[in-house]
Computed example of a mutant assay.
Amino acid sequence: MKSKRLSLVLMTAALGLTACATTQSPTGRSQTLLYSSSQMQQMGDASFAEMKKQQKISGNKKLTQYVNCVANRVTAVLPDQTQKWDVVLFDSEQVNAFALPGGHIGVYTGLLKVASTPDQLATVLGHEVAHVLAQHGNEQVSRSQMTGMGMQIADAALGAGGVSNRDLYMSALGLGAQVGVILPFGRAQESEADIMGLELMARAGFDPAQSVVLWQNMSKAGGGKGPELLSTHPSNNNRIAQLEQLQGQMQPLYQSAKANIKNQCAAPK
């Protein structure tokens, strides 16, 4: 019944376009959002449930506790503290992580080899959570709908489409690297997530200077192709330069926050 209700909501939205709303992103960009928060939450819930079926969940308790520690500190500084966040560590060599509407965070064990410190892991998680806060998934699904792919996305939610349709739907929520269909966030969205994510990690007591090191590590990882995370989150000189320029604003936030941090989230050895 829940699946049918979700299907009806999504199909109605895909056909009607009546819920279109133009708003401003956290950094002042104009956004067109066709879906309500509750609809996006349903999409996120369905996608995360699908990911947990498709991917092996890690049984390493120490790594799981560590990832949860970092994620919990990041989400603890979010404006909305009524949202509960579900964090899952997937057992995979993928160098990747994602966050979805509805309070879901997925991290792959392969990421921990590149994001080798709590601060570097917080860089990735802050960035991914920022995509959710800025409603980038809603923006992506809405853009897809307006360019003719919306019916495929609705079909995927309905379960009426094939695997490729379902993958496109999940890709629109930022899961492109996992399902093999790339619908990357735009440059403006990536820049926005970098700025917001940097502030989140600083307020959570993680050193924002490590964000530069993290993206440098990402650029070096995996040879010319790079890790999976770079399929949808390109690392380049402009990104690193922006992060360096933001240090003057973010370091005071970090210095203020770190004195009050009780849980240091030490990485398992």
Rank of each mutant, 00 (worst) to 15 (best):
S7L: 12
S7C: 14
L8M: 13
V9H: 07
L10H: 11
M11E: 13
A14K: 03
A14F: 05
L15A: 10
G16V: 06
Q24N: 11
Q24S: 12
G28S: 07
G28D: 07
S36V: 00
Q39T: 06
Q39L: 05
Q39W: 02
M40I: 02
Q41N: 13
D45N: 14
A49T: 11
M51S: 08
Q55R: 13
N60D: 14
K62G: 02
T64K: 03
T64G: 04
V67T: 09
N68I: 08
V74I: 15
L78G: 00
D91A: 10
S92L: 02
V95F: 03
V95Y: 04
A97W: 05
A99E: 01
A99C: 01
G102M: 05
I105E: 08
V107D: 00
V107L: 00
G110N: 06
S116D: 12
S116A: 08
Q120K: 13
V132C: 05
H136S: 01
H136R: 05
D155E: 12
D155M: 14
A157T: 12
G159C: 03
G161F: 11
L168F: 07
L168I: 11
Y169T: 14
M170L: 14
M170R: 15
L173P: 02
G174C: 01
A177S: 13
V179D: 03
V181H: 05
L183G: 02
P184R: 13
A188F: 12
L200A: 00
M201K: 04
A202F: 04
R203Q: 12
A204F: 06
G205S: 05
D207T: 06
Q210D: 06
S211M: 09
S211E: 08
L214Y: 07
N217P: 10
G222L: 02
P227M: 07
L230C: 11
L230G: 08
L230Y: 07
S231V: 12
H233V: 09
H233R: 06
P234N: 06
S235W: 04
N236A: 08
I240Q: 04
L243F: 00
Q247N: 04
G248L: 04
Q249T: 09
A257K: 04
A257R: 04
Q264I: 12
